[in-house]
Design a protein around this nucleic acid. Sequence first.
DNA 1: CATGAATGAGATTTCATTCAT
DNA 2: AATGAATGAAATCTCATTCAT
Lengths: 201, 201, 201, 201
Amino acid sequence: MSLKEREKEFKKQVILEAASRLFSNRPFEAVTMDEIAREVGCGKGTIYLHFENKDHILTYIISGELGNLCSDIEEQCLNNPDLVDAINNYLGLQFRFFRGYNQILSSWVRRRLQDNVKEEWMDNIHNKLKKKLEMAVSVFERGHREKKLIPVDSYELARLLEAIFQDATFPFVDERSWHYDPDRIVSLMKLILTNGIMQAV
Amino acid sequence: MSLKEREKEFKKQVILEAASRLFSNRPFEAVTMDEIAREVGCGKGTIYLHFENKDHILTYIISGELGNLCSDIEEQCLNNPDLVDAINNYLGLQFRFFRGYNQILSSWVRRRLQDNVKEEWMDNIHNKLKKKLEMAVSVFERGHREKKLIPVDSYELARLLEAIFQDATFPFVDERSWHYDPDRIVSLMKLILTNGIMQAV
Amino acid sequence: MSLKEREKEFKKQVILEAASRLFSNRPFEAVTMDEIAREVGCGKGTIYLHFENKDHILTYIISGELGNLCSDIEEQCLNNPDLVDAINNYLGLQFRFFRGYNQILSSWVRRRLQDNVKEEWMDNIHNKLKKKLEMAVSVFERGHREKKLIPVDSYELARLLEAIFQDATFPFVDERSWHYDPDRIVSLMKLILTNGIMQAV
Amino acid sequence: MSLKEREKEFKKQVILEAASRLFSNRPFEAVTMDEIAREVGCGKGTIYLHFENKDHILTYIISGELGNLCSDIEEQCLNNPDLVDAINNYLGLQFRFFRGYNQILSSWVRRRLQDNVKEEWMDNIHNKLKKKLEMAVSVFERGHREKKLIPVDSYELARLLEAIFQDATFPFVDERSWHYDPDRIVSLMKLILTNGIMQAV
DNA sequence: CATGAATGAGATTTCATTCAT
DNA sequence: AATGAATGAAATCTCATTCAT
């Protein structure tokens, strides 16, 4: 019984990975169910044994990755004795998350705008986002207590950083001429976000 | 004859405005040509007298708005004797631009990824983006010469700020719980970007 | 303007006739939109310019024919000075109606059972059925006043006759061996329903 | 060995009963094999060990019930010394049969029209229908000899009564407003069919 | 024997684009 | 020049049936 369930779960993961691969490179609408099935190496119908519909797959991918992000933040930031390190880690995790999944996130936001995402699935995502936000806030609150951060409402700060990172790596409108080195960018961004662009006098 | 051309140009603008209105609120795919024609108040066929296809309209809108942005930057930043003011203006213009057009920009990027944007149209956009970038670089170079900015490559800085602003206002993944006040955000963002989030010791 | 509308209405009728032809011979599910388009001699999309979906066509056919039936009843029964003649006409009209459209009616009932018929369309049908029933009742009431009918509630009598005729011609479960002559049947049925099957003593 | 066969036969009956339950309430097409298996409490594949396909089940159900009907008619009508009683019983049995199975019968007729019923299975049904008809005819012939029935060809009379009853209870096109009491209807129908609707002078 | 995961043909519906009027 | 009716490619999703376990 447990074996059957494990096998089923495994197959679900295989589908998710294949779909994630495709959704990462092209917009949701441009990926067909036939393609996903071909990428998985199974029939179209098989996918529908594991997911209700195409949007369900998309949501599931995000839910999973968001879960991973939460675990990472909890581990590297919440339980980190060094505050500056914690903040740095938070910025790095955020950056990498959105760098990796912004095509998918952007697809999801678009689908939601068109009411293609079931309320129930949205709640799942919602809860994880909330948890992530709360963790960030908790880090920033600590920053305030330790007088390491500018005196700005923690919630707003967390929101704003989310917003900034959300698409720091959004497929650049003019990507052709900037072949950026991710590591270089993440450090530059951290530098700017922690110190600002104006030179201290 | 010049009158005829003016009339034609006028009609083109009317279509662009109507389409822009629709593309701003919903993803490109969710807006039909029928709807655009209805919004314009003309027949569907008429639109095809002015534009080759749906993606052409989208590109044209962006091209126009990008032109406006360039003019504004030139006027408020390039010719501004006060450097800090110039930088502040630049940040504000960027923010407002992406706030207003990110749904459209996002749609365009998506269409381009699917090879729906003609090379020729892309070049147009490209040139304007390049011009905008050059202007930003020129401002930052001045900032470096006047020792007002952190010593970071001007091109990279300009790119990074583009990236940050590009979707600072992107429809938030979790928009339900943050009813943000745009003015408050723009000032907060400027604060952070100029001073960073870490409190000066 | 009136010409355009007339043309549109004409095309709608052409589609209805083609669909009616197909739906009369085979169950709804067995008729594809492709087939209807082919029968009409137009593209699939054209049909959707006139009808919301496949079930809409079905409903529209029934609505139209029911309208014709109502007119006929009004003319031949309601305004008929000879009561026996009126009743005879009513029975004949009923019989021919259900003989001609029972495959279609049966399809519609089935689709409704599966909630494929919009409430709004149902109301349309409903009103016509009600009107038809009221007319029958009115005829029967007159029959009662003139002491020509057995003393049975007019509504129930009308309902019962509807039920009997509704499928007196329903594709016989074993149609292969009874190649019936419709006229012979209708007279036989009238005989039985007027005199009963038991011989007067 | 006989035990094995009995077991197999038993299982077949269990499946038939479950399927009959489902097919009685919803059209054939709306009932899935998954549902049937769930109702039976077995795997989908198991059903295919007993029946060739979905249409085979439907045919088998009808065949069985038709057999029961034949037995009942034989017992209650053919061997009945009281002719009027025999005829009454026949009408009652017919009515109840079609009342109970018209959804199923209607489904079967539809499937046959689409050539989904194997010739071989059809013959089975055919023979039973023929037997039933012959019995009815035999009763009516006796009625004629005893001068109790109107002088109408027995075959045609039997056919007609089949037709009338076949769908006296067919889901009324306008079922919403007539919540009929089956017993009341059967007696009313008997009254009409025996005395006719015209009042004796 | 019994199972149920896998399959893929096939159906409906949408909508950008064309073109006769 | 302006129109909007007509088109048909293309996408999602369902479900009877098979077959490896």
